[in-house]
């Protein structure tokens, strides 16, 4: 091992200090992994323990759950009997959290946003990366400037816009698009400055020769976009879609303001409402941690499937 290190470094001798330094660095890296992953493990350990067990002496110590149970997951999935609810929460009337309803809302909102945002932003990105027209730089600069706007600066006017959506646009006469899916989706559906910027950078790096061949063959730009650019750029479009999906999934502020009604509210909002209902003393940590873990689960699954791509895309955006 040491011999190999020496050869690799091409030095006569790896000093003791350098080897120790590497050891310390590896130890720090392992510590970093533990610091990153432990909170999730601890949430799982808590979710597998009933709340009365947790508050019993020593119930929140030790790395393993004292008496593992699935009753808390059953509770947030709405599959628990009254007896199980009481067993898990330790109360007769505990605040409840409807995971499946929130999940449905989150999936609808994030899916529609991701599809619309990527498609329409890709159209715009194609024009900005590939077409030449007067004012192209101005349009691009305008989009970039939009990236700098603090969301809260445009949130208040956007909320008024949602409230005033007329009935011919399917708005409610009193509340417009408040507490509707379209209200939660609208501001992110047609574009975000980041998506346009990100995809434009990708399109700029695609070799032009294929498109040019198609153009000379008489294809128009819409056909080129559909049958040349979309297939070539599909990995990047998927990456952007994943980023848009996760961002929409994690969004809290906008739905917190426009879509609080549990019928349409995404998981972030209903999970927060669940924690607000908790008392200051002896809150239902078991129920909360089951809900918290399940709310993060879809993102963790997406991450397991696309992690490599997400990492690469962030490094890409770091260099650009």
């Amino acid at each position: 091992m040491t011999a190999a290190l020496r050869d690799m470094a091409g030095r006569k001798e790896v000093s003791r200090a350098a080897r120790m330094g590497r050891g310390v660095a590896w130890a720090l890296l392992v510590l970093l992994m533990i610091v990153t992953l432990f909170p999730f493990y601890w949430a799982l350990r808590t979710a597998l323990t009933t709340n009365p067990d947790l508050f019993a002496p020593g119930g929140a110590e030790g790395l393993l759950p004292p008496d593992p149970t699935d009753v808390n997951f059953k509770r947030v999935l709405g599959r628990a009997t009254d007896a199980e609810i009481q067993e898990g929460s330790g109360r007769e009337n505990s605040a409840s959290f409807d995971y499946l309803l929130g999940l449905k809302n989150s999936v609808i909102i994030a899916t529609v946003i991701a599809i619309g945002q990527v498609f329409f932003s890709a159209l715009a990105a194609y024009a900005l990366a590939r077409l030449k027209f007067k004012g192209r730089e101005a349009v691009f600069f305008m989009f970039i400037a939009g990236m700098m706007l603090p969301p809260i600066f445009i949130l208040i006017p956007n909320l008024l816009l949602m409230r005033d959506m007329p009935t011919w646009l399917f708005g409610d006469a009193n509340s417009g698009w408040l507490n509707t899916y379209q209200g939660a989706i609208a501001p992110f559906f047609l574009m975000t400055p980041f998506a346009v910027f990100f995809l434009r950078q990708f399109f700029l790096s695609i070799n032009r020769s294929l498109e040019e061949a198609a153009l000379i063959d008489g294809a128009n730009h819409f056909r080129i976009f559909r049958s040349v650019i979309l297939p070539i750029a599909s990995p990047q479009l998927v990456t952007m879609g994943v980023l848009a999906y996760v961002t929409a999934w994690n969004e809290f502020f906008w739905p917190f303001v426009v879509a609080k009604d549990p019928e349409v509210a995404p998981l972030t909002v209903t999970l927060n409402a669940f924690s607000v209902q908790q008392p200051g003393t002896q809150p239902d940590w078991s129920g909360l941690m089951s809900g918290t873990l399940l709310a993060a689960l879809p993102v963790i699954l997406i991450f397991a499937a696309f992690g490599r791509r997400i990492v690469d895309s962030i490094q890409f955006s770091g260099i650009k």
Binding site: M33, W249, I300, I302, I314
Partner: peptide, 11 residues
């Protein structure tokens, strides 16, 4: 290392 960044703030 990237994982926490993908988890909702609320969580």
């Amino acid at each position: 290392v990237l994982l926490p960044w993908l988890i909702p703030n609320v969580v």
